[in-house]
C-alpha cells in the first residue's frame, strides 16, 4: 500500500527529514508551515481592517454631521454601475475560490482558467470604476482638482439627477460646500479599494505566469490560498462600500 507520489499530507513521524521540496527546514511539517503562513496572512489582513476602518469611521462621523450634504451628494452615484460592480466582484471572488480548489486538486488547466477569469473580472471592475470616475470629472465633482457646488446649490441645474430625486432641495452655501467632503471620502475609499484591486490584479498576472510553468499544482497551495484571502478581503471592503456610498441615502 505504499504510495509515495502523494505526500501533501505532511511529514510522517518515522521519516527523518524526509519532506516535500517546498517545506522549509524550520517547519516540523507541511501542515505547520501552512498554518504559520495562514496566521501571518490573517495578521496582515487585520492591519488592513484597521486601515479601512479609519476611513469608514471618518465617513460615519462626517455623514452624521453633514447629513443633508451627504444625502444629496450620494444621489450623484449611479446605482446601476454600483450594482454591476458588486456582481462582478462577487463572481470574481467565486472564481478565485475555485482557483484555490483547482490548486488543491492539482488541476493545472482549471487553475489557469480560474485565475484568468479572476484577472479579467478584476479588470472589468476597474473599467466600470473608471467610467464612474470620468462622470465625476465631467460634472466637476472631483474635490480639489475639478470642483463645483452647482449641482447642490441648484439641483435643477443637474436635470439627469434631479429627475431621479425631485425631492432634493437647494442646499445653503455652507452645507453645499460640505458635499466636497462626501466626494473626498468617496474618492479616498473607492480609490484605496481600487489600488488594492490593481495590486491584486498585478499579483494575479504574476501567478498566471507561474501557474503556466506548473507552480501551485504540486501540493504547495500556500501562495494561491493566501492570495485568495487577500482577494476576498478586498471583496468584503466593497460589500460595505457599496451600500454605504450608493444605497443608504435613497431614503
Amino acid at each position: 500500500m505504499s504510495d509515495s507520489s502523494v505526500t501533501a499530507g505532511g511529514a510522517v513521524a518515522d521519516a527523518h527529514h524526509e519532506h516535500p521540496p517546498y517545506q522549509r527546514h524550520h517547519f516540523e511539517s507541511v501542515d505547520q508551515q501552512f498554518d504559520a503562513t495562514n496566521f501571518a496572512m490573517w495578521l496582515f489582513l487585520l492591519t488592513e481592517i484597521m486601515f479601512f476602518g479609519g476611513l469608514f469611521t471618518a465617513y460615519l462621523i462626517m455623514r452624521n454631521w453633514y447629513y443633508p450634504a451627504f444625502v444629496e451628494a450620494s444621489h450623484q452615484l449611479n446605482i446601476g454601475w454600483g450594482t454591476a460592480n458588486t456582481g462582478v466582484l462577487i463572481v470574481s471572488s467565486f472564481t478565485m475560490a475555485m482557483g484555490v480548489w483547482s490548486a488543491e486538486m492539482r488541476k493545472k488547466g482549471l487553475l489557469i482558467l480560474f485565475l484568468s477569469l479572476t484577472f479579467i473580472l478584476g479588470l472589468a471592475f476597474l473599467g466600470i470604476k473608471s467610467i464612474e470616475y470620468s462622470e465625476k470629472w465631467e460634472k466637476h465633482h472631483v474635490p480639489g482638482l475639478n470642483w463645483s457646488d452647482a449641482s447642490f446649490l441648484n439641483p435643477a441645474s443637474d436635470p439627469e439627477v434631479h429627475k431621479l430625486y425631485p425631492q432634493d432641495k437647494p442646499l445653503a452655501p455652507d452645507m453645499a460646500s460640505k458635499t466636497e467632503m462626501y466626494f473626498f471620502l468617496y474618492f479616498a475609499m473607492t480609490g484605496m479599494h481600487a489600488l488594492h484591486m490593481i495590486i491584486g490584479i498585478s499579483i494575479l498576472g504574476f501567478m498566471l505566469v507561474r501557474a503556466r510553468a506548473g507552480a501551485y499544482t504540486t501540493g504547495h497551495v500556500t501562495y494561491v490560498e493566501n492570495f485568495g484571502l487577500y482577494w476576498h478581503f478586498v471583496d468584503i471592503v466593497w460589500i460595505f462600500l457599496f451600500p454605504l456610498l450608493y444605497l443608504i441615502s435613497r431614503y
Binding site: V6, T7, A8, G9, G10, D31, F34, W101, E104, M105, R106
Partner: peptide, 10 residues
C-alpha cells in the same frame, strides 16, 4: 488527494 489532506480541508 482529499484523504491525504487530513488537516487541510478542501
Amino acid at each position: 488527494v482529499v484523504e491525504h489532506d487530513q488537516e487541510h480541508h478542501i
